[in-house]
Simulated assay, not measured.
Amino acid sequence: MNSFKLALNTSTLLSFRLPVLEQIRITGEAGYEGIELWVSDIQSYLSSGGTSEQLKDALHEAGVEFVNAIAFFKWADEDENVREEGFRQAEEEMRMLASLGCRAVAAPPFGQVKHVSIGTMGDHFNRLVQLGRSLGIETYLEFWGMAEQLSTLETALAVAAASGIDDSRILVDPFHMYKGGSDWSTLEQLQGNQIGIVHINDYPAIPARADVADKDRLFPGDGEAPLKRLREQLERAEYVGYLSLELFKEDYEGLSALEVAIHGRKKMNDVFKGNE
């Protein structure tokens, strides 16, 4: 039996426009062990009078761990001024996340990165990881299949190597592997401790890869993604971290937010744990 733990990325509930406390409650009620919250949702809650202590209490009452945050700071932008502002934003948001007991934050290639070399991006990632660790937050390198740089797992491995940080971690996502044209055999190069978290989703045969978008993501097992192979590769790598459901569906055909969360957990169990 594998040791995967299940989390919910609250993008999956985006279409319901729920406040962050409701997102946390539903995640716990649906039986997930972890949650990925969006920094923007946390900031909306805090700016409207909520407190960090209330958020921490909600996480505790729901019985879920705040395993990763979804943020958008331009840490690798081509423009130095934009990049420096990105690092100021990163420090501010990392401090906030640390105060909530968050474990990590994702670092995708947000911003203008087309002409940033692998080596330069590695230097920027080194700086970002060091900043996060000084504040008690890990940083997971995330590749985006539609990005003009850092679009594949292969590139992510190259950036991680260029960073010089031996224990850096990568965020793995089947949708982005497909969209960017990553080679699934590259996963065999990863050991479990090199993976920060795994986003779980599926994708359809139509539209084609060039046209498929975030909104087209499917529940695991409902599409074409080689998720059985992913499971086997994660087991071989001895990965024991979180699998986090990340969808962006605009319509769940009448299901409530809780029903969506429960259904998603069942689908992940069916594919990755073979139980419940």
Rank of each mutant, 00 (worst) to 15 (best):
E92T: 13
G223S: 05
S244I: 05
A90I: 03
A30M: 14
K179N: 02
E29L: 06
L13F: 04
G86V: 00
F143H: 15
T10K: 01
S163G: 12
Q43H: 04
W184C: 08
V212R: 05
E93Q: 14
T27Q: 12
L128G: 08
H263P: 03
A69D: 04
E65F: 12
L18H: 01
V116M: 09
E250S: 05
N68K: 02
V105D: 05
S244Q: 02
A69G: 09
M146H: 14
G34Y: 06
E250A: 07
M268A: 12
F143C: 12
E224S: 13
P109L: 05
P109H: 11
V116L: 05
N2S: 15
D123W: 01
N81C: 04
W75F: 11
L255R: 06
S244C: 06
A69P: 09
S48D: 14
D77W: 00
A107D: 10
L243C: 13
L255Q: 13
L245R: 00
S134T: 14
L6E: 09
F16G: 10
S99G: 11
E33Y: 08
R88T: 10
Q130K: 15
G122N: 09
A161Q: 13
F272W: 08
V172K: 06
E232S: 12
D77F: 00
A210H: 09
G254S: 05
A205N: 14
S185N: 14
Q89T: 11
I165T: 11
P207Y: 04
G86E: 04
V105I: 15
S244N: 01
P108Y: 02
T186K: 01
K56Y: 05
G50M: 01
A208M: 08
F110I: 08
D214P: 01
V64C: 03
D222H: 07
D202E: 12
A147D: 10
F72V: 08
L255M: 15
G101F: 11
R25A: 15
G181Q: 09
F143Q: 10
A58D: 06
H115N: 14
K249H: 03
G119D: 15
V105W: 09
E53A: 13
E80M: 01
L150M: 08
R83D: 04
D123L: 05
C102Y: 11
D251N: 15
G86L: 01
R103W: 04
V82G: 00
T51W: 03
A156V: 03
V198E: 13
L55T: 06
N9L: 06
L245N: 00
A98W: 08
I165G: 12
E65K: 15
Q112C: 02
G241K: 10
